[in-house]
Design a binder for these strands. Sequence first.
DNA 1: AAACACTTTACGGTTATCCGTAATATAAAG
DNA 2: CTTTATATTACGGATAACCGTAAAGTGTTT
Lengths: 221, 221
Amino acid sequence: MFKKVLIAEDHEHVNISVRKTLEDLGTIQKEFRYYCDDALALLQAAMRQEQPFDLLITDLSFEEDKNIQQIAGGRELIKAVRQLQPSLKIIVFSLENNINMVDELFDDHGIDAYVRKARHDAEDLRKAIDAVSSNKKYRSASLMRNKRIENSYDFKAFDIGIIKLLCSGMPQKNIPGYLQENNIKPSGLSSVEKRLNAIKTTLNISSNEQLVAYCKDKKII
Amino acid sequence: MFKKVLIAEDHEHVNISVRKTLEDLGTIQKEFRYYCDDALALLQAAMRQEQPFDLLITDLSFEEDKNIQQIAGGRELIKAVRQLQPSLKIIVFSLENNINMVDELFDDHGIDAYVRKARHDAEDLRKAIDAVSSNKKYRSASLMRNKRIENSYDFKAFDIGIIKLLCSGMPQKNIPGYLQENNIKPSGLSSVEKRLNAIKTTLNISSNEQLVAYCKDKKII
DNA sequence: AAACACTTTACGGTTATCCGTAATATAAAG
DNA sequence: CTTTATATTACGGATAACCGTAAAGTGTTT
């Protein structure tokens, strides 16, 4: 089991209970930091003293406050950590429920586990720590469930782009100009209309207003 | 201080640490439930046995799972509780950072405190419990920060009504008919247009799409 | 290079929205 | 009962969105 663990998590309550979970698992030395910069500094100091950490448990989103940070969030922290100490095991513990984002964390940042903050997260975190300590990867079961019940329409970057433009107040007829300036193809007004139409037909939506409401509700934009 | 406290919170980790906070404050009897239905049932049982709770700490959003619930979330739970036991003190402990929603909880549901899950939430919760125990209302300081940058437009029921109709896909020109059928005045198309225009001008918004996006973001609808 | 399928764009008629102005209705005050 | 102020509705021209169809472009195959 892990001996020296660092928790990076801004929410005090979560921080407290993760500590408690570690206690239950018999971790001797555990540190916690509420800011990413502090967390990285501690990891660096431990390296210098040749007493490195062997596990990092980190959140993804850290709220900004008057303490201006170099490292804004968990993703950047992980990136920095991977340069400093590639062997460090990393467990991400976050509310984030987007499978694409989680996949990216595994594939591009080499994290060892992803635990979603959810109903059984304490138990889930214990399982993750177990798995990682035997060099296995782990991801919350509750993540997988979600994507099956998804949108009947598969929104592409292009779709999301034009809907965002609508949300910014740009009239439909000005969208082609914007698309051309930014070298996005297709850029014709007809193409924009056609695409919006396809989305609306598929989702049984009749107006742009309803489409925006739908996308906001589903957190597509 | 409170003697009998119920925690309704689906996230295990948060649940654990709130319990710990209560321990620190010397609460003797504390119960915790992961589902709203269970929480209400327990309150009811306590009433029947004439040993009612004197404080409820509840989250707002509860994730759905295979355990189908009558009461979907914190808001509905509070509503039900207010009918059952109007004197019960209620502290809402949630991630929600929207001032309109919080105001509504205070004004329409008579909650006693709102603590936002954020950096210093453990300390914040302690303060809230303190305040509520002396019959004072409390809301997180971190919420207040947002208030200043808030709506410059005061949305009336009428405004929200027509925007909701737009969100449902109804074309603007059909709104007068709907308003007449439901005896909502004014009902003229000009009045609808005028009102939408007033909102948009005030908020510096140029299209209905942008307005819908704005309202969704601010959780006005 | 020609034929083909497919994507993108252009065009035009219809309908809806936008927006200013004028008429009417409603309410309060004299 | 007027007068006055305000709120509501009606109207109409300009603009934008909607929608079907035709033209132009793109890439692949032969």
